[in-house]
Each structure stands twice: as C-alpha cells, then as structure tokens.
Amino acid sequence: MRMEIKEEAVESTASSSVARSRSSSAWIRGIPIYVMILPGFLYFVIFRYIPMGGLVIAFQEYDPFLGFLNSPWTGLDNFHRLLTDPDLGMLLRNSLILSGLNLILFFPAPILLAIMLSEVSRSWFRKSVQTIIYMPHFLSWVIVVNITVVLFATQDGGINNLLESLGFQRIEFLTDSHYFRALYVLQNIWKESGWSAIIFLAALAGVNPMLYEAAVVDGASRWRQVWHITLPALKSTVIILFILRLGQVLDLGFEHILLIQNPVNLGVADVFDTYVYRNGVLQGNFSYSTTVGVFKSVIGLVLIMLANRLTKVFGQEGVY
C-alpha cells in the first residue's frame, strides 16, 4: 500500500516540474543535457540514419555496380513478389506461432527465475545458481544444436538409447515436425533464460528492503510479498521489454532456426529470416532482402505503436 502512495507522490512532483520548465526557458536549461546527448545523436545520424537511405533499394532491382542512384527502379514490384508469394501465409503463420510461444513461454521464464532467485536466502546458493544458469549464453547456437543432436538423435541419441533400453520405442524428436516448436522454445529457454534474468535482477536491486519489512509487520505471506512488492518493482522493466520484443515479433533467431531446420520440418520451421536467406542473401539479391526486412519492420512498428498506446491507456510509461 505504501508503494502506491509513494508512486503518486513521484508523479505529482514530476508533473509540477514539467509545468515549471515549460514556463521558463526550457531550452536553455536543457543545454548541458543536449551536450550529453550530442555524441549519441551524431551516432544515430551517421551510423543509423544516413545508411537508412539504403532502404530505397527495396524499390529497385539493385545492382551493386550501378549503385543506389543508377539501379533500375521497380516501384513496388518487390513488395508485390513478397505479398503474392504462395508461401507468405505459411511464413506468417510459422513466425507468429513461434513468436507467440516465445512471448508466452520464453519471455516470462527469466522473470520467474529472477523472482525465485531474489527469494532465495542463502547467498552462496543464489550465487551459484545464478552463475550456472547464465553460462549457456556463451555457447553458440552451433554448439547448442550439436548437443541437442547428441541427446535427441533417433539413431544414436542419448535419450533414445535410454528409451530403447527401458523398452520404449525410439522417438523421432528431430525429424518429426510435431516436436519442432517445443524444441525451438525449449532451446531458447535453456540458452537464454539465465542471461535475460540479469536485467530483472538489476531492476529488483532498486527495491527498498524496508518495504518487505513493513509487509512482514503487516503479516503478509511470502506469496503476497512477491505479488505486492516484487512484481510491481519489475513492472516498468517488464512492460518496456515486452513492447520492444513485440517490435521484433518476426525475428526468431536466424542462426538458431537455420540450424534446426530440415526438409521434414520445413513446413513449420520456415520463417521470414530463412526465407530471405534462401531467396535474397544467398543470391546476393539485396533488394529482395531489404524488401522483406522492411515488411518485417513495418509489422513490428505497428505492433509497438499499438502496445505503446495500450500501455499509456493503462497509465504506464511506454517506450516513447
């Protein structure tokens, strides 16, 4: 309860300070801040916005020897090719399902982990768990997929050998497309949960322990403490990360997917990144690669804008 009161207090101070600065010359007050922002600003202009001019090739049949200005213009042909590609439906379906699974299962995993870690009282235990689950992040996808094969292969995989020795049938984990999605999400969780938990742990580091002490005095159970103190403390970070993830809803980890894709699971495993790799990158067709990229980004942008709007409706601070 005290938490909410505090937040209101903060909000009111904020709005009063906004009002004040509007009346005075905010520009002058902002000078030191603008100086601080300048290097970053220049970075964005030089290394992000100038190159963005290259997006014009989405409307061209880009030829590296002719350059951006002299390559033949094709209008919306590339977009037309993408939108009329009979595979588009499949790509969208696969991407959205995998993304959805990521958001439902993979996104909360590190949050849960961070909360559990913060609830552990033995420091050595917390630290060891934290360090160990953080390690897989440093294995490349090639290695993670290799380990998966060693464990799950049909012919000689560890798990299947075990199943057979226990008198069960071997299961085609890797070549049966039904297992693909579960495999993909579990690999993500295995590799990245511990790593992604860091950011939430950092957010929890800012919580005032007195809040918990007060809660104990009020007789709140541990569950209630998590619910009323820990979760609210994570709220703004969770919201921001969630919105930003929505912007990348069609990015599913190109390297990862390419490594676990095979002809048998292609029907569920083909996503935009692998599609564009096949149809653009490998052919040196930068125009088409860019077109697909723009398409993905526009969808991401729309989702971010919607989510941001929604966040503000619920009275939270969005990403812009």
């Binding site: 094969v149 049909t154 012919q155 890797l174 070549t175 095979n262 002809p263 048998v264």
Partner: peptide
C-alpha cells in the same frame, strides 16, 4: 528395415 541411418535427414 534399419539399413539406412535414421538420422540421414538431419
């Protein structure tokens, strides 16, 4: 019949 490697596709 188990003559060909079950994992040939991967």
């Amino acid at each position: 019949e188990g003559v060909l490697d079950k994992d040939f596709a991967i």
